[in-house]
Amino acid sequence: RSVMTEEYKVPDGMVGFIIGRGGEQISRIQQESGCKIQIAPDSGGLPERSCMLTGTPESVQSAKRLLDQIVE
């Protein structure tokens, strides 16, 4: 099973929602998708923050879907 890492951008203002209280939302996304998510510590003043998604292609797709649901 191939593991890939893909960069994915999320709106900087939504990072708090994505991480959730005490990190529980991001933990849930990682468990549900099976994908490891690393969010950049800051956006460098840009409107979007970079996330690194690491996992199988299916888990990366799944994580993107879950992130999109939060961001919308």
Rank of each mutant, 00 (worst) to 15 (best):
Y8L: 08
M52I: 12
G13E: 15
R21V: 05
I37N: 00
C51F: 15
V15W: 07
G22A: 09
K64Y: 02
E32Y: 02
R65I: 09
R21G: 08
G44V: 09
A40K: 09
T56Y: 08
E24G: 09
I26W: 03
G22D: 14
P47R: 09
A63W: 00
Y8D: 01
A40M: 11
E7C: 15
I70L: 15
K64P: 01
D12G: 09
G55T: 00
K64S: 04
T5R: 13
S2K: 13
D12R: 11
I70D: 04
S43F: 06
P11H: 03
S59T: 08
M14Y: 11
S59W: 01
S2T: 14
K64L: 02
V10R: 01
G16L: 05
R1A: 04
S62D: 11
E7G: 05
R1S: 05
D68F: 09
P41C: 11
P41Q: 11
V3D: 10
Y8G: 01
Q31S: 11
R65N: 13
S27I: 09
I70H: 08
I19G: 07
M14T: 07
L53I: 15
R1H: 02
M4R: 03
G55N: 00
L66C: 14
G13F: 04
P11L: 05
L67P: 01
V3C: 09
K64I: 06
I19T: 12
C51V: 14
S43L: 05
Q69N: 12
L67I: 14
T56A: 10
L53G: 00
I29T: 03
I29K: 00
D12L: 08
R28E: 09
M14P: 02
P41E: 14
G45N: 06
C35S: 03
C35P: 00
I70F: 15
V10F: 06
T5Q: 12
E58W: 04
S62F: 07
R28L: 07
R49Y: 07
S50Q: 12
I37L: 06
I37S: 01
V10K: 01
G55Y: 00
Q61H: 09
V71R: 09
T56I: 07
A63I: 02
I39S: 02
L46I: 06
D42L: 06
Q25K: 13
L53D: 00
D42G: 09
E58T: 10
P47V: 10
G55P: 00
R21W: 15
G23M: 10
E24S: 11
V3M: 15
T54Q: 08
I70P: 02
Q69H: 10
I18T: 03
T5K: 13
E72G: 15
K64A: 07
I37G: 00
G13P: 12
R65Q: 12
Q31E: 15
Y8Q: 03
P57D: 06
C35N: 00
V60D: 01
V60Y: 01
Q38D: 10
G22E: 13
E58K: 10
S50E: 08
S50N: 15
R49C: 03
G13R: 13
E7T: 11
K36A: 12
I70T: 15
I19V: 14
P41A: 10
Q38V: 14
A63N: 00
S27K: 15
E32D: 07
D42Y: 05
Q30G: 03
G55F: 00
G13I: 11
T56C: 11
I29P: 00
E6A: 04
D12P: 13
K9M: 10
P11G: 04
G22N: 15
I19K: 12
S27W: 09
G22M: 04
Q31F: 06
I37C: 04
D42V: 07
K9E: 02
T54K: 14
M4N: 11
Q31R: 13
S2A: 11
A40H: 08
E24W: 15
I37T: 01
